[in-house]
């Protein structure tokens, strides 16, 4: 049974499998191949051009002794955690509010989703102007008569990350809202009717019944938002350039600066390998729970 079953499984959907071959090859060569190449060369002393001179773990030792890298990681962690929580909360709240069968729903949806259509560079520039004390929000409020009003998060090392976070949230929340809204629309009307008959308040229904039912939507959103967080680069470039001082440096910017400004490829490779390792540490347990669990259960 199993012997006759195997070949048929291999040739099942043959055309689909053939069609997938180019993408599989691309993925293997470009993603896996380049990643492996990068990891290998992170153990060399390559400068502007790749060189094959082996230096062992020197690049990693230097990397973890560089304060700028440590600051970058800390910044990304703070930004990432806040971004993840706030984007999900704000996105879900907006979706729940829009789901109350309000008027002009399309209009609101467009308005909230619009920022996502802008690139991070544009978003960053707009928010750099808005948060600039000379001609942004601070100036506008002062012109209204509140002379002592002060709001310049980008010029204070302690608050600069939150200035970047505001722009990031403005950009991402709309997309999260749309995904959540789709999830909410997928919940059967009968569920709502049943909870209503049982006399369960709406907020409790959301938390206890609806959100657990929306698990796949949450996971999709989580992946999308997380990948956006790790890639964080253009927003910082446009808003702060990493400043003041090193207060808003992020790993992706470290990698770019090392590879192309300092012309130290190997150091940049080491840093990007560490980023890859971090991503793998997050993804593998999650994938195991998500896919591995289902097979057995």
């Amino acid at each position: 049974m199993s012997q006759s079953g195997k070949p048929t499984a291999l040739f099942k959907n043959l055309s689909a499998k053939i069609a997938a071959i180019p993408m599989v090859l691309t993925a293997l060569m470009v993603f896996v191949g380049c990643s492996v190449w990068t990891i290998i060369y992170s153990f060399t002393n390559s400068r502007l051009l790749p060189s094959a001179e082996w230096v062992g773990l020197d690049q990693y030792e230097r990397l973890w002794g560089t304060r700028r890298w440590l600051i970058s990681i800390e910044n990304l962690a703070i930004y990432g955690i806040l971004m993840l929580i706030l984007a999900l909360v704000i996105g879900f709240l907006l979706a729940a509010l829009i789901d109350q069968k309000i008027r002009f729903e399309d209009g609101f949806r467009t308005i909230f989703l619009y920022p996502y259509a802008l690139s991070f560079i544009v978003t960053g520039l707009v928010w750099q102007w808005l948060l600039n004390p000379e001609f942004g929000i601070q100036n506008a409020v002062r012109n209204l008569g509140f002379e002592t009003f002060s709001f310049d998060p980008l010029y204070n090392p302690d608050t600069v990350l939150y200035g970047v976070l505001i722009a990031g949230l403005w950009h991402t929340s709309g997309l999260v809202m749309c995904l959540m809204l789709a999830g909410l629309r997928g919940i059967d009307e009968d569920v709502w009717k049943a909870t209503k008959i049982d006399g369960i308040p709406a907020w409790k229904t959301y938390i206890v019944v609806v959100i657990p039912m929306m698990r796949p939507v949450f996971i999709t959103t989580l992946v999308l938002v997380t990948s956006g967080i790790i890639k964080l680069y253009d927003l910082v470039i446009a808003q702060t350039g990493g400043g003041p001082g090193l207060a808003s440096e992020v790993p992706a910017k470290f990698v770019f600066d090392m590879m192309f400004v300092s012309q130290n490829l190997a150091q940049g490779f080491a840093a990007s390998t560490m980023m890859l390792v971090a991503v793998i540490f997050v993804i593998i347990p999650w994938a195991y729970l998500e896919f591995g669990g289902k097979k057995h259960g």
Partner: peptide, 19 residues
């Protein structure tokens, strides 16, 4: 000195002048 060294000096003094 190499661009790498310039970069390291830059990182140091940027932090120094900001803090």
């Amino acid at each position: 000195v190499s661009p790498d060294t310039v970069g390291r000096v830059t990182d140091l003094v940027v932090e120094f002048f900001a803090d």
